[in-house]
């Protein structure tokens, strides 16, 4: 008997628990989505033909997409600054990026709500100094959702980028400029391509996690910003509409799974090439 087999029993409790309380429930959901009211794909047909559901799918993809772009635009300089900071400052910055990550989404969304509402701090300050006459709508709309989501998801972009940038040899950039490239050209032709693996991983992570977001859009968004997770919750909570809710959940699951498969495939390709 090898050492590996002797400790195999240690796996049993965890595997049993995940099997019974996770894999089985998810397969139960899949079954309900294709078996009610009758066997068939009618629930999926409903989702992909009715404009309200298509609208929510579109919202989900666009909000996740814009969040990803914003995270990349903010995450890039942040990661760059982290790599080039002194060790003490770098530790502090990592800590600062991790705090929202560890704090409850509920607490963070509530904090934004207090700051952004019509009688909130930002509107108070802006009307106080006379910059605007009327309070602005900063929350219960797309702006609020994006502000909240980018704050939460930024670590998923910053850490992969940081890992890649920390390994880039600064002499490449200097070589390009010494050979006559303008700094802008050297950045786009040398530095940015070297960062692409980190940027790609970060973007995929942000996008995938954003697709399933529920609390932030529910608290900071309006009726026009409903994402798929919120729709699933409402369908079950308010209408007990399991067939449609489970079909929506499976659509989200398949979408997420496909994107993960793409990440895996790309990273395998990249490893194979080097």
């Amino acid at each position: 008997m090898t050492a590996g087999n002797r400790t195999l029993w240690l796996l049993i409790p965890a595997v049993l628990l995940i099997g019974v309380c996770f894999l089985y429930p998810v397969s139960w959901l899949l079954q309900r989505s294709v078996s009610e009211p009758v066997w068939g794909l009618q629930n999926y047909a409903t989702i992909f033909s009715r404009s309200i559901y298509l609208g929510v799918l579109w919202n989900t993809i666009t909000i996740a997409g814009v969040t990803t772009v914003l995270c990349a635009l903010i995450g890039f300089p942040v990661a760059y600054s982290m790599v080039h900071a002194r060790p003490r400052i770098r530790k502090l910055l990592i800590f600062v990026v991790l705090i929202p990550f560890w704090t409850s989404i509920l607490v963070r969304s509530f904090a934004w709500l207090v700051i952004l509402q019509r009688g909130g701090i930002i509107n108070d300050i802006l009307t106080g100094i006379g910059l605007i006459a009327e309070p602005m709508d900063l929350v219960y709309n797309r702006f609020g959702v994006l502000l909240g989501m980018v704050q939460v998801l930024l670590p998923f972009m910053v850490f992969p980028l940081y890992a890649v940038m920390a390994r880039i040899d600064g002499s490449f950039f200097r070589a390009a400029t010494n050979l006559g490239a303008t700094p802008v050209r050297a950045f786009f032709r040398v530095y940015l391509p070297l960062c692409l693996p980190g940027l790609g991983t970060g973007a995929m992570l942000v996008f995938i996690v954003a697709l399933g977001y529920f609390i932030t859009p529910a608290l900071l968004g309006g009726r026009g910003d409903i994402m798929i997770a919120q729709l699933i919750f409402e369908r079950i909570d308010e209408f007990g509409d399991w067939p449609l809710a489970s079909a929506l959940a499976i659509v989200l699951l398949v979408g997420t799974g496909l994107l993960f498969a793409i990440i895996k495939g790309v990273s395998k390709l990249r490893r194979g090439r080097i």
């Binding site: 996770f22 998810v26 399933g212 699933i232 489970s246 959940a249």
Partner: peptide
């Protein structure tokens, strides 16, 4: 897996 799916299931 998105937590909303786990929750519903």
């Amino acid at each position: 897996v998105p937590v909303i799916i786990t929750a519903a299931a």
